[in-house]
Simulated scan of single mutants.
Amino acid sequence: MEVCTPLKSDSRLKHRSMTPLRFLRGVICLVVFLSTAFMCIVYLSPLAVVGLRLISIRYSRKAVSFFFGLWLSMWPFLFEKINKTKVVFSGDSIPMRERVLLIANHRTEVDWMYLWDLALRKGRLGFIKYILKSSLMKLPIFGWGFQILEFIAVERKWEIDEQILQQNLSTFRDPKDPLWLSLFPEGTDYNEQKCKSSQKFAAEVGLPVLTNVLLPK
Score class of each variant (00 low, 15 high):
Glu2Arg: 07
Val3Asp: 09
Pro6Asn: 09
Pro6His: 07
Arg12Thr: 03
Leu13Arg: 06
Arg16Asn: 13
Ser17Met: 13
Thr19Glu: 08
Pro20His: 02
Leu24Thr: 05
Arg25Val: 06
Arg25Lys: 15
Gly26Asn: 14
Gly26Met: 03
Gly26Phe: 06
Val27Gln: 14
Cys29Leu: 00
Leu30Gln: 02
Val31Asp: 04
Val32Tyr: 11
Val32Met: 07
Leu34Glu: 15
Phe38Asp: 02
Val42Leu: 12
Leu47Met: 09
Leu52Val: 04
Ile55Thr: 02
Ser56Cys: 13
Tyr59Trp: 15
Phe68Trp: 08
Gly69Pro: 09
Leu72Tyr: 08
Trp75Leu: 08
Lys86Trp: 07
Gly91Gln: 05
Ile94His: 06
Asn105Glu: 12
Trp112Ile: 15
Arg124Val: 02
Ile128Arg: 04
Leu136Ser: 12
Met137Trp: 11
Met137Ile: 02
Ile148Val: 08
Arg156Leu: 02
Lys157Tyr: 05
Trp158Ile: 01
Glu159Thr: 11
Leu165Gly: 10
Leu169Gly: 07
Leu169His: 07
Pro175Leu: 04
Leu179Cys: 09
Leu181Lys: 03
Leu183Val: 13
Thr188Asn: 00
Asp189His: 15
Glu192Pro: 07
Gln193His: 13
Lys194Phe: 00
Lys196Cys: 00
Ser198Asn: 05
Lys200Phe: 03
Ala202Gln: 04
Gly206Ala: 10
Leu210Asp: 06
Thr211Ala: 03
Leu214Ser: 00
Leu215Ser: 00
Pro216Phe: 07
